[in-house]
Design a protein around this nucleic acid. Structure first.
Lengths: 341, 341
DNA sequence: TGAAGTGACCGTAACGGTTCAGAACCAATT
DNA sequence: AATTGGTTCTGAACCGTTACGGTCACTTCA
């Protein structure tokens, strides 16, 4: 029977026709994909674990780019892409257990997330993205630390010494406010931890006492958070000459707050982002561009040709420092004479 | 055994512990989701069929909004969302057959698409979106025809009589150029067909010979298409006072072309769109806003509570005419005295 | 003390396909 | 005529799980 559908060469055309005819007459809807998957041990789909609220993936431009790249890789391979809901509120690991997939891509979740643990227990290949190297599964990411270090060097060379930071959530608990050094080090989001540590290193080297730098955290990732985070930093220390945001979305929000306060960017305040999304380019933001689409595509490729037990691979994609028109030497800064526009 | 995982109440805690212990010792990875699906006849996922190149879904703002709404509905119900690749080039219906899902959502595909036919043959509930009412499955959409009629009335009341149109693809074959009346009527994309027919009706009523109106079609849906489409219309008839685009993305592209030609919008040329995406709002575009997120959510809800054999439901969501600053009375037009700004 | 009732546990039969071994058949060769 | 080879077709095993009904021990009540 299944031969009639899948192996036309294995039987005579006449029998095939007869089988298909009676099948249609009996109202047979064609082979059941689930039963087929059980037998062949291939689901024909890869799972994408997004710990964030599922709809978040469609709001964040960087996440959309990643999704697009991953979808492209899946399309090339002819497999589907299953978005696995993983609501962080109820610890509903069941969704991971219930997903019939040939492998998982894990995108930017906290490293202590129970869903991630559940994925790693499943006997399928996995690629983690923007995560620490687990040593046991493939990984794709960028050098967040190095890229942010480079951005910090840019600001330092412009003459900035008194700065503030707005970052995304650092752990699963909501903490909208200032961040202690401890919390920075213990951050469960690999990406944010490394970006902060790149900043800390560069500014420490430049003689800045990092523990005195105001770092504000926001749980939600949108422009409003960027604006309110910027407000909190500027209230704390109105003397800062640069505001460093760990994402473009936050930075764009920060720009609106600067405008609201009548601060001219970059004359009165430099603002920087991270990601290199289209909106940032349009705004001329100084930022680090990372190849989000390529990241998704690389994750998909890695997963889809998981050769039997080659040792875990780790891919780092290149980033590029984009110097836009939102960073300049601080007003009246000593260095202005040498580094100004 | 399965009880130990799924029905802790059916057995004593002691046995449960013992079972789970030996399971772990034997390296048992937990119940297999595919086998479970086979037995329970529930896949725990819904399929989304996008006939367009898969990555398209992540480029078009309206599609993203739809996806977000659908993802929200799925998240609420605790089911996954499977993106089914359906490359229009190779007629690869296998992807539809291979998808292990409890139902399908079909989003804006041509009504003669073989993938759609394949979905309808599958014995699972289906919701079509932006499609003609098939009478056999649930449907969600808007009144494209009526909404466009209303937009046309707005332009007519401003005094526009000589207009041009840029529309999205009308069928599966690529036809970048002028569109005959025949092709307009025979269009296989329900949405485009109805928008055009709303225009034709309104302008015909106003005494305009619709067959003389230049209508240009573009296969790809991006701003560049809008720009080149606008150029083609303006080359054909530089006298037009309004350019009607069947999507905001095309309209935004048309605006860039108008600017390139030194045409001031709306003074020299009115431009209108359709969808109500964020970028259009930012640009002050005159357009029709449709609730894309709600459309996705409605499709998901419809699918997920498919009560046994209720007769097919059809949902029409409300739209809203947004009069922005890209439409005004034509320069020197007779009506200007009464309707001008 | 025996019958009936209760709850925990276990064995087995599907679910619907794929695969593979071998039966049946036919033709050609020794 | 018997053996060989090749092709087409049939049947049974298996994939891993859950639903279901039956067994068994143990309690309860007459």
């Amino acid at each position: 029977m299944s031969n009639a559908y899948n192996r036309p060469d294995q039987l005579s055309p006449e029998l095939r026709r007869r089988v298909l005819d009676t099948a249609r007459r009996l109202g047979y809807p064609g082979p059941d994909p689930v039963a087929r998957s059980l037998r062949t041990r291939k689901a024909g789909a890869v799972g994408l674990l997004l710990t964030e609220n599922l709809s978040y993936a469609f709001r964040d431009p960087a996440a959309i780019g990643f999704l697009e790249g991953l979808a492209l890789a899946c399309e090339d391979a002819g497999t589907g892409l299953l978005l696995v809901p993983a609501n962080p509120e109820r610890e509903d690991v069941a969704s991971v257990h219930r997903a019939g997939v040939d492998g998982f891509v894990v995108y930017s979740v906290p490293d202590d997330d129970p869903h991630l643990a559940a994925v790693l227990e499943r006997p399928v290949p996995t690629v983690v993205c923007d995560q620490p190297d687990l040593g046991t599964v493939d990984r794709v990411g960028i050098d967040d630390r190095g890229a942010m270090y480079e951005l910090a060097r840019h600001l330092i060379s412009l003459g900035h010494r008194r700065v503030g930071v707005v970052c995304m959530r650092l752990a699963r608990d909501r903490n909208d406010g200032f961040v202690t050094a401890d919390r920075q080090h213990a951050a469960h989001f690999h990406v944010q931890r490394n970006r902060l540590s790149g900043l800390a290193e560069a500014f420490s080297e430049a003689g800045v006492d990092w523990s005195q730098v105001p770092v504000v955290e926001r749980f939600d990732h949108n422009m409003a958070s960027g604006a309110s985070g910027a407000a909190q930093v500027l209230d704390k220390d109105p003397q800062i000459t640069a505001l460093i945001c760990t994402s473009d979305v936050l930075a764009l929000g920060a720009m609106t707050e600067a405008a609201r306060r009548g601060l001219r960017v970059p004359h009165d305040l430099s603002v920087t982002g991270f990601d290199g999304i289209r909106e940032a380019e349009a705004a001329g933001l100084t930022t680090v561009r990372q190849p989000v689409l390529e990241k998704g595509r690389a994750a998909g490729k890695l997963l889809l040709d998981s050769n039997e037990r080659s040792r875990p691979r780790s891919v780092n994609l290149a980033t590029e420092l984009i110097i836009g028109k939102t960073s300049a030497a601080p007003r009246g800064g000593a260095e202005e004479r040498w580094f100004g526009p």
